[in-house]
Amino acid sequence: MDIPEEEYSIIRQCIDGNPEAYAILVRRYQDMIYNVTYRILGDPEGANDMAQETFISAYMALKDFKNSSKFSSWLCSIAINKCRDNLRSRKDSIPLDDIEEVCASNMANPEEMTHKRQVMQNLQRALNALPRDYKEVIILKHVEGLDYREMETILGVSANVLKVRTYRARETLKEILKEEEGANE
């Protein structure tokens, strides 16, 4: 799976000592990585920091990037590993009220804001309740829309294993969402 020529050229420029070119890749993938880190960690500030660290770590390891995978997959892999380390060191859970900050800037009116906030909270609560392995595959498969081959590259697990894991993750997620729905009624 070769990366596009243009991306390869940017990476070569960075390795050759032209860091300014890296900004192109950052802008291109910043939202994707931020969504991944946010969905895994569940807090906007931590996710922002983790996303920035992902790009910085990726830059410092550019020489190790193999052209055989997509650059975005490689970034995701770094992001997920960083999130895993972060979660291992965390003891407290993140209050879901932080989601309000994420929603506020995009809302047109208060009712819409309340509804969207509720949806976001429910989803994030459900994701947070999933085991780590399940959360990761749900995020990559259904938040980022990746296929199993890309997920294989990112997580270092065979596609067949990831399929089974995703099936089970969906069913667990379904049950959690049903429970929340029941609790909200």
């Binding site: 910043q30 922002n48 938040v143 969906r170 379904k174 969402l177």
Partner: peptide, 26 residues
Amino acid sequence: QAIHVVETAERLTVHKGFTSAVMKGL
């Protein structure tokens, strides 16, 4: 429905200055 909830969840965007912060950290 569960998949629909996840796939239609609002996509988040980074804060302004994200790229500059990354570049400064290089």
